[in-house]
Amino acid sequence: MMIRKLLAATAVAALAVGTAACGSSGSSTTAPKVDKAVKFEAGTTMDKLNKAQKITVGTKFDQPLFGQKNLKGDLVGFDVEIAKIVAAKLGVPADKITWVATPSKVREEVIEQGKVDFVVATYTINDKRKQRVGFAGPYYVAGQDIMVNKDDTSITGPDSLRDGVKKVCSVTGSTPAEKIKTFLKDPAKQLVLFDVYSKCADALKNKQVDAVTTDNVILLGLIDASGGKFKLIDQPFTQEPYGIGLKKGDDKFRAFINDTLEAAAKNGDYEKAWKATAGKVKPQAPKLPVLDRY
């Protein structure tokens, strides 16, 4: 949509000026232990960041539960916590992280231009993107799912929509909107498209549609905001592995982040990060997915 493109352009412009959005410290809900004594091989990215005691991280500022700026100006979310875990392992405390807003359309660009050290921003790993950036992770596998009204038991998955009657809402021009069409008998009678998901939530609330579909993490945010009016079907029917984007070819840094993720999964930091954020809506913490160490 136009608005998102505009935002993206604005963000790029802001970065170009070098004012780099704002550097908020973020509220330390979990505060992973900072490794003060750590030493790295000279010349690596890790060494450089450790010596500088400063990291710049790209994340979303408007993605509930994953990366969202709250009213106090603090960034909260699972992506934010993952970034803090990586920073801590580099010996950099959370308050030394400079956060940069990276909406979907600018992510490759800011990485390529070195405006950020890495990106944790509900960033799906795929081959097309791998041609431009490197990916550590995945640290989470999202998937397209379906959200319904709390008391609705008639929809159990995308196949429930094949009846040709139930109406489903998504966002215009989105991949989930395309995907769900394959489950519909007649899109003209079943598919409702808006420019933003909040409108889909409104339409679901006043029963003009029976379901809303997109990535489950977005749906979780909507459920959180609804005050318990909606629920997730929790039957993801696509795979969206979220990775940590970094400069292409920086394999040592990539391996370091992967090691960090594995360690965090082992010592419980990973679970803690989930519980403090997305766990508010989906208490069952996920297992760290099998890493894609290419």
């Binding site: 949509m1 021009g173 395309e178 899109p187 003209a188 409702v192 498209l193 808006f194 003009q208």
Partner: peptide, 21 residues
């Protein structure tokens, strides 16, 4: 109309072809 629930109007066509495809 494409931003307010109507699926598949002319303007939305552009969004679908560019963003999704």
């Amino acid at each position: 109309a494409g931003a307010f629930g109507v699926a598949g109007d002319l303007f939305q066509t552009s969004d679908e072809l560019t963003s999704a495809q």
